[in-house]
């Protein structure tokens, strides 16, 4: 089914909704439709019930974290320095706020077509990480939205039972976010991934600092040799 026609059909059915086609450059050709949070439920109901669409199976719901970026650029400015106009170079950092995105994959059991991909984004990753829940439209989103709430921290307004799904209730972090730092609870990691390596090395030096003095001497004499070679392994 053509996404363009779906888009125009939805725009006709849900007045005021803002839809945007998001192209997908990969050979899979699964382009997606970005919907705005305010009209999300109406759009979803239309997708499910409109006789030509009938996307009655919401198969997959998932979250994606897009952390904010800091870009630094040099800008030339004219300024008054010591009473004269001069051209000065300044570093200016711009911070784009990140967002959390939720993706829904819809199929139609009745018409046997699909998938169509819906995307919604939050305004930022902290206080305004709210999105409307589509669980009232498709029950299948219930557990998956809970999982996204747990692991990404998106709050779904209108979800009947929004609790953590996988982690325990006392847990405060959202581990699937890209900037999550897990507890330092392993002693040595044989996998040669850069991040893991860095943590293993850091752990080693911390352990060395805690050792009694003679052991430290022993260890430190080999300090350089003790380090795993970065990027080795694979």
């Amino acid at each position: 089914m053509n996404l363009e026609t779906i888009k125009s059909e939805l725009e006709a059915a849900v007045p005021g909704c803002r839809l945007e086609l998001v192209a997908n450059p990969s050979p899979s050709g699964q382009h997606s439709l970005r919907i705005d949070a305010a009209h999300a439920v109406a759009v979803a109901v239309c997708l499910r019930d409109a006789p030509g669409l009938r996307f009655d199976l919401c198969s997959n719901v998932t979250g994606i974290d897009w952390p904010g970026k800091q870009t630094t650029e040099k800008v030339k400015l004219r300024k008054l320095v010591d009473g004269t106009q001069q051209e000065v170079e300044e570093l200016r950092t711009t911070t784009t706020p990140g967002s959390l995105e939720v993706v829904y994959h819809l199929f139609s059991i009745e018409k046997k077509h699909g998938p169509i991909v819906l995307r919604m984004s939050t305004q930022d990753r902290d206080a305004n990480a709210h999105l409307p829940s589509l669980t009232p439209v498709w029950r299948s989103a219930e557990l998956q939205e809970r999982e996204i709430f747990d692991l990404f921290g998106v709050v779904f307004d209108g979800h009947p039972d929004l609790r953590r799904l996988l982690m325990w209730d006392e847990f405060v972090d959202h581990p699937m976010r890209r900037d999550y730092v897990g507890p330092d609870d392993y002693e040595y990691e044989p996998t040669a991934h850069d991040e893991v390596l860095r943590r293993a090395n850091q752990h080693l030096s911390e352990a060395a600092a805690k050792l009694p003095s003679e052991a430290v001497g022993n260890q430190q004499s080999e300090t350089d040799g003790n380090r795993l070679s970065e990027g080795g392994g694979r």
Binding site: N24, S26, S59, V103, H105, P115
Partner: peptide
């Protein structure tokens, strides 16, 4: 792979197993 995304699914013995 080039930038982009894909959702692939099969009929596993348990049901629809998909990878996104």
């Amino acid at each position: 792979p080039k930038p982009g995304e894909a959702y692939g699914r099969i009929e596993s013995p348990k049901g629809e197993l998909g990878f996104y």
